Amino acid sequence: MANSIHRPRSDLTKEITPIVMGGAAWSHQLNPDAETRPIIPVILKAFSHGIRTIDTSPYYEPSEKILGKALANPQITSLYNRKDYFLMTKVGRIASEEFNYSPDWVRESVERSLERFQTGYLDVVFCHDVEFISDEGVVAAVSALWEFVEKGKVRYVGISGYPIDKLVRVARKCKEMGKPLDIVQNWGQLTLQNTRLKTEGLRELKEAGVKVVCSSSPLNIGLLRAQGVPIGTLGDWHPAPSGLRQAAANAATYAAKHNDDLASLALRFAVRETANKDPSLPTMSLIMGPGSVEEVESCAAAANSVRDNSAKGEFGDLRDEVVLDKEGEKSDEKLVEGVREILGEWMDFSFISPPEGWSVKEGKMMK
């Protein structure tokens, strides 16, 4: 069976695609109707544009199940083999306040993900939201993942989380142990509203041996769009305070008055920021979260709109080397500046994660 064949480690920077399809759209946290959304057309459309990397997590229930079933469907397998796409998932976070990073659970979680995806290997497995446990706990979980690398069931190992200092600290510890992380994922901090990942983390992560950094949530979990934050089965869980929400709403109105859309502008900004060719910094990929064919087209259009496609026509394959359209970047400058002026004091504002009262030692709220 083709899906059971293992693949050796290679050059991660050349395998992961510049644009990644996030799997959170297929979670009940964001969409109560996740099971009825048209997943197969979304995957086919994303793959056709060169968005060949998928990132998900067991925490995004039931995303793994939905994606795994879809990827095994003949509509997809008749066109794409397992080696044609890059699959990333996570371990450790189970629910909003339930975590298990023990080596035994890491092993069980990976085996379950392999079964759900009906594959013999996962390209990347991250320890998910590592700020919720101690550094030592993360390192132990990472060590369990390296066991799967040795068996050929996981190709690359990484961590994900929000606080940049935590990600850098753990990456350094892993390098000191002689097992540097391959990849790190951070969310909401390389956006039109917050660029701290670029100013506070990329160089340090490179020094710690990290090859690739994924920046997810370019809309900051739906904050940077006219519709406002998404409401799913968890209710209004978005961490943005009311002042930031109002500033984002004002920015959306400003963009509309200038015949643009805040979400589109934010996507263009994020694509430019992650199209980094500085050899002293890690390679970057941008994780977007389309939940419909229309949203895939919107993401692809935003990604293509910042590229110089003059030699390849209007829409190139998003796996192609990124050459930025300098004229387009210049035309966006005034609008970007206007949005940032409206955001004002909320520029580079970061959320508190884990929340106050959380004990990383106990792995739970102590209040």
Rank of each mutant, 00 (worst) to 15 (best):
R9E: 13
T17M: 05
V20T: 15
H28Q: 05
L30N: 09
D33I: 08
I40T: 12
I43Y: 02
K45S: 15
D55T: 00
D55I: 00
S57L: 00
S63R: 01
Q75T: 13
L87N: 01
L87C: 08
T89Q: 07
T89N: 14
K90N: 07
A95I: 10
A95Q: 12
S102F: 04
S102Y: 00
W105S: 03
E108T: 03
V110A: 02
V110G: 00
E115Q: 15
F117I: 01
F117E: 00
C127E: 02
D129K: 09
F132Q: 02
I133E: 00
G137K: 13
V139A: 00
A140C: 11
L145M: 01
K153V: 11
R155H: 06
Y162W: 13
G188M: 06
T191P: 06
Q193Y: 07
Q193N: 10
L197Y: 05
L202Q: 13
K206R: 14
S216A: 15
S217T: 03
R225Y: 06
G228Y: 08
I231T: 13
G235S: 04
G243S: 14
G243A: 11
T253C: 10
A255Y: 02
D260K: 11
D261C: 07
A275W: 03
A275G: 05
T283R: 05
G291L: 03
R307I: 10
N309P: 03
S310R: 14
R319Q: 12
E321S: 15
V322C: 07
V323S: 14
E333R: 07
V336G: 11
V339K: 01
I342P: 11
L343F: 01
P354V: 01
G357P: 06
G363K: 07
